[in-house]
Design a protein around this nucleic acid. Structure first.
Lengths: 239, 239
DNA sequence: TCAATAACAATAGTAATACTATCTTTTTTG
DNA sequence: CAAAAAAGATAGTATTACTATTGTTATTGA
């Protein structure tokens, strides 16, 4: 059984909705186990997107869901864990999409190109079966995802495997990198840099364009081209 | 008058302590204008370092300084502004150090190498005249700096020029990049990527090493070598 | 040098946040 | 149908993030 088939087995696909089983250190009660739980996650994505993570509170979320704060706390310990849950879901989703789209590609350069396309969102993979507001989720990933690890107790929560999906995504891309250029000494570092700088350049090009070389002409494909150039020149120079 | 001389003129150097005049949108009352203000900034660096930004409060800071919360509020509107002040100070400091160390170098490759060295802290520039706890400040920059712009109202606060020192640092490095490789189309993007990924890889190598290729052997120079390879292969490939 | 004024300390208070606890009602399930 | 689990309703606490007021001590500038 190949790794992709294994992944498919880990999910249940029902009526166009993908379910990922996430690490139970992320929640108190599995939000996938009830309609209310799903609503909490779904509406939290919309609310974090519109308020920003700092301004987002469980009280506001409860009002949105039509329930009470206490009920939200029955699902998630605090808002950081909820964000971590959302970001983990996204990492799993991306890993899944990557496998799906790489399945029939044999050329490692094409694989890397596809991965960059996915990360920079230049591939319009349909949001069929996603269940959540895709725009909101992607914006949250860009603006808030680094807040899940940029905390004092990273190492403590890391023990509970909460970064496993991220590490798996990072490893998968690192493997493609090594496949493309076996002599390159930093495949994982380049992979994490690729993931993070894709997001960061998207953020900068939208909100602080002076930190980038984005302009009216290259706008739509700027991040993809910049990151693509960065990765391939680096690897080709290390061949 | 060259740009470096201009910069020197912008500062006053007194008894080994460097003072930078920072944007007054950052504070209510200039902390450089009193001994208490300096204490507030200095001890906030120690406290943010030891508690992490999320756990850090003005009440705790006031206790540390031996004053009251109300007094701290007379200097800074809130803790986000204080962090922004600290990070701005660091950006100005780095820009100053960069100019100082690049002064007598003519070769653009050597200039870039020096810049990378400074960003990855592999150059032990003496902390003489810094006035603050250098280790704490550098750790804050690595772990907390992105929180100053990853907020909902980035564009609003950007109007007050609070990211100017960052943009200046980014531009300065971008100019060296263009000097080294005039045909490279993304000098500012590469510059911001260089700055941010230097910090991120330092963070990952310390706290989530599985996302990098750090090991016992390359530990001390890992980030510098990775980033150096990334930048030079990218630029050499675009010549 | 004295009078004004700014700086700071001390204290108090408010609204919101981040929770926890308890009790009742509803829903699920064995 | 009974037991158990989930959710609703309500209440309450500690901490955070401020604002306001008043009195005292430095500073400074006429």
């Amino acid at each position: 059984m190949d790794i992709f088939t294994t992944l498919v087995h880990q999910m249940k696909i029902m009526a166009y909705t993908i379910h990922f089983k996430l690490n139970d250190a992320l929640y108190v009660k599995d939000p996938e186990s009830s309609a209310l739980g799903k609503q909490i996650v779904s509406l939290s994505i919309d609310l974090i997107y519109s308020l920003g993570f700092e301004t987002f509170t469980f009280k506001k979320l409860a009002a949105e869901v039509g329930t009470t704060e206490a009920t939200v706390y029955r699902y998630f310990e605090n808002k950081h864990r909820l964000l971590l849950y959302i970001i983990n879901w996204y990492w799993k989703y991306l890993d899944f999409q990557l496998n799906l789209q790489l399945k029939n590609i044999t050329d490692s350069r094409k694989k890397l190109e596809k991965a960059i396309g996915l990360l920079t969102e230049s591939i319009s993979d349909d949001a069929e079966g996603m269940g959540y507001n895709k725009t909101a989720l992607y914006e949250i990933v860009i603006s808030e995802s680094s807040k899940v690890y940029l905390i004092k107790d990273v190492e403590e929560i890391n023990k509970h495997q909460v970064f496993k999906p991220y590490k798996e995504l990072c490893s998968r891309i690192a493997d493609i990198i090594t496949d493309y250029c076996p002599s390159y000494p930093y495949p994982k570092s380049l992979s994490s840099t690729l993931i993070e700088s894709s997001h960061l350049q998207q953020f900068f090009s939208l909100h602080l364009p002076g930190l980038t070389d984005v302009n009216e002409k290259n706008k739509s494909s700027y991040t993809q081209h910049f990151v693509s150039n960065l990765v391939f020149q680096t690897l080709d120079g290390n061949k």
